[in-house]
């Protein structure tokens, strides 16, 4: 997302959250899911956390003033929520109860529950590799290279200075390279 389109998304959300939010979910879900998937133990956890991230984002946005929404660094802000949930997921492993439970059997399109349950060997290997990294390096590497956030956005998401984030990414990559050779 360029700065310009980000700004326009913010205005749309500030103007009419309910109308803009479904598009925000559609635009960001692949990124959030891809990133979370590399930071939690299982695809089921990743799905749960991705949902919870958006639900919390919606609730927070509906309380925020227009000014506050305008000033938000949306990708960074949403990732703050997601990273918090990822940290908690390591402690509590239970699925969050939903007030309404989707009939998942009716969703065969896209990646169904069966495909999700079967994790490829490749995925498992990457999970192990990434898990060996210190948490800060892991999230920095994932956000930079899997999700494609800018350093500024990662700094926002992790609450760490941009310089530190760059160093985290660099060290993480070096470690991964060592592990792979």
């Amino acid at each position: 997302m360029t700065l310009d389109t980000v700004g326009r998304v913010n205005s749309r959300i500030a103007r009419d959250l309910d109308a803009a939010f479904p598009d925000l979910v559609r635009d960001m879900q692949n990124g959030i899911y891809s990133g979370v998937l590399r930071m939690v133990p299982s695809p089921a956890d990743a799905e749960d956390i991705t949902q919870e991230t958006f639900i919390r984002a919606y609730r927070a946005l509906s309380e925020y003033s227009r000014e506050r929404i305008h000033d938000l660094n949306l990708p960074g802000w949403i990732w703050t929520i997601a990273l918090n949930l990822c940290r908690n997921a390591a402690r509590t492993r239970s699925r969050r109860p939903r007030t309404v439970e989707l009939d998942r059997d009716a969703f065969s399109g896209g990646k169904g529950p069966e495909a999700m349950a079967m994790e490829s060997d490749e995925n498992r290997r990457w999970r192990q590799l990434l898990y060996q990294l210190p948490a800060a390096q892991r999230s920095a590497v994932v956000l930079r290279h899997v999700v494609g956030l800018s350093y500024r956005e990662i700094a926002e998401a992790t609450g760490r200075p941009e310089g530190t984030v760059k160093a985290d990414v660099h060290r993480g990559i070096t470690r991964l390279q060592e592990a792979l050779t």
């Binding site: 979910v25 559609r26 879900q29 692949n30 494609g148």
Partner: peptide
């Protein structure tokens, strides 16, 4: 490693 989110996320 970037992948598509399961189709159930947005509806839920």
């Amino acid at each position: 490693l970037a992948t598509e989110a399961p189709s159930t996320i947005a509806p839920q």
